[in-house]
Design a protein around this nucleic acid. Structure first.
Lengths: 143, 143
DNA sequence: TAGTTTTCTGAAAGTTATTTTCAATTTCCC
DNA sequence: GGGAAATTGAAAATAACTTTCAGAAAACTA
């Protein structure tokens, strides 16, 4: 299932409608390689489609984030940015030191920060390990 | 050198002045265990000191962040929060798979996200590993 | 597929957090 | 203590985001 279909299914499940604006915004967003703020994407869309509204772009980006197709990033410049979530997202682990339970987690924002760190040192990442060790919910309760 | 002294030195270096308000804000901030927004800290300070201004609290928190005593966090709720940076901040590693070079890095924002992940699973973190593997600047150049 | 219901849209207004302005005050350096 | 320079608090300004609302469009129903 491609991402347009994924989004359509998301809309259907939520009882929302598939509109031409949403499709335009989705397409523009998916074809981006950078991190768009609402403003950025709005201005880009305006070039082709002068009657699209800022509020619609904003609302659609929120929906995309909710559907999992986008993640919302905050670099602390007071402007939210949205990034497409790519397939093959990998996960990291929480490991319980008492019972051995392993929980997989995904946190794209950590990935972003890793990339930022690597960039800081002109380092080219090939892979990574990231494990959090501690007590799971049950073991913490018993302790 | 304690943190008050650190801040005073930071002020002196920047040609800024040591005022009673700044000291009050610094003290309240350092004695906090939680993440304060400007608003939070402002309201707390008002209890003891009704004439302190919001703008001053805000400006001082920015200075603290600039001085390295605080980090500014963004949880995406549209409100910046500030957290004291504690001593003994630990670091993680970049490891070059070619020449074995190890670079230490610190990235408090990753720590914050880790905590967020842990909270998501009601997991109590005891320690963690976080290593990025790849090519250092030099090896990447040669490749 | 026409009619009905519900959601959507864009523009503008409203919020909320943050930043700036400015006149009075305070600090710092002799 | 005197004076230049920075600071303060209140209020105004800004900027990002969210909501409102009436007309438009999509989805459902028979």
């Amino acid at each position: 299932m491609d991402r347009t279909a994924t989004f359509n299914e998301f809309l259907r499940e939520k009882g929302l409608k598939n509109t031409s604006q949403r499709m335009l915004i989705l397409e523009a967003f998916l074809n981006s390689d950078s991190h768009y703020s609402t403003e950025d994407l709005y201005l880009k869309l305006r070039q082709e489609n002068p009657k699209i509204g800022y509020a619609t772009v904003h609302r659609t980006l929120k929906l995309l984030a909710e559907s999992g197709l986008a993640i919302e990033l905050n670099f602390g410049d007071g402007q939210a940015r949205f990034e497409p979530v790519h397939e093959a997202e990998h996960h990291d682990h929480l490991v319980c030191t008492k019972c051995g339970l392993i929980i997989e987690f995904e946190e794209p924002r950590i990935e972003t920060l890793q990339n930022e760190v690597a960039k800081r040192y002109n380092f080219k990442i090939q892979s990574h390990r990231h494990e959090l060790y501690g007590l799971c919910q049950d073991c913490a309760k018993k302790a």
